[in-house]
């Protein structure tokens, strides 16, 4: 029996919530998938994401047992979200139901940055929250970010950087946005390990916002998208 499970094996909604947090925290992707399937059988996959997985991810994001959430746990959380996305997308296709989408947004690693893992996990979290993501990959020049955002009508560009050197390359994207008169209308989200230790770095590189981890990314992008619609340059 794992934490959150009832002794007789029956799982109430409350216990499923607890068990899901426990499963992701110990990086148990299979068990997390079983719990989500169990919930979805009663309430549907849309509710499984909104009412079960999303709150669980938020709770995990606040920290488990006051220790930092590990990369392994974050990776499993992203995989669980991806699994959910695959299952619910399959069901939507079968039912021919219209799907609510957000975005599109552009994502990529800053020029000269090759640390793909964080970016990929953010992309997964965004997609599982309903965002259409155009992922440009590693080592993306500033102009390419902006060109792509214009081409697809993105109001948010998300840039990941692992080191101080590559984070500073984000300034070029801000310069591109300013030069083309797009600041405010296209918002710049920044993130990566170095932003956690270098206080004020988001402002320094010209970012409109940052999130402490990938679990917070959908919330950040929603906030920036709304600002982009208002054409608000909050810097």
């Amino acid at each position: 029996m794992t934490p959150g499970e009832h002794p007789d094996g029956e799982l109430s909604d409350l216990n499923i919530r607890r068990a899901l947090v426990a499963a992701i925290s110990r990086a148990d992707r299979e068990r997390a998938g079983q719990l989500l399937d169990h919930w979805a059988a009663r309430h549907g996959y849309a509710a499984a994401y909104k009412d079960l997985l999303e709150p669980a991810l938020k709770r995990i994001g606040r920290g488990i047992n006051s220790e930092r959430f590990s990369l392994a746990q974050a990776y499993v959380a992203a995989k669980v979200a991806e699994d959910m996305l695959t299952k619910s997308a399959g069901l939507l296709a079968q039912n021919s139901e219209p799907k609510t989408v957000k975005g599109p947004v552009v994502l990529g690693n800053a020029e000269e940055d090759f640390h793909a893992l964080g970016r990929r996990m953010v992309a997964t979290m965004l997609r599982s929250s309903g965002w259409v993501v155009c992922d440009l990959g590693n080592d993306v020049p500033a102009a390419e970010f902006v060109d792509k955002a214009i081409e697809i009508g993105a109001r948010v560009i998300g840039v990941s950087a692992m080191t101080m050197t590559t984070a500073l390359n984000i300034k070029e994207i801000r310069r591109e946005l300013d030069a083309r008169g797009l600041s405010g209308r296209i918002q710049l989200a920044v993130g990566g390990a170095v932003f956690l230790v270098a206080e004020g770095l988001c402002d320094e590189v010209g970012g409109d916002g940052t999130a402490p981890d990938m679990l917070e990314a959908p919330h950040l992008f929603a906030e920036l998208w709304a600002r982009g619609e208002r054409g608000e340059d909050a810097r």
């Binding site: 925290s25 110990r26 990086a27 220790e67 930092r68 590990s70 990369l71 392994a72 746990q73």
Partner: peptide, 9 residues
């Protein structure tokens, strides 16, 4: 490190 892996790993 706790930033990378779980206690089990």
């Amino acid at each position: 490190s706790p930033g990378f892996v779980t206690r089990e790993i």
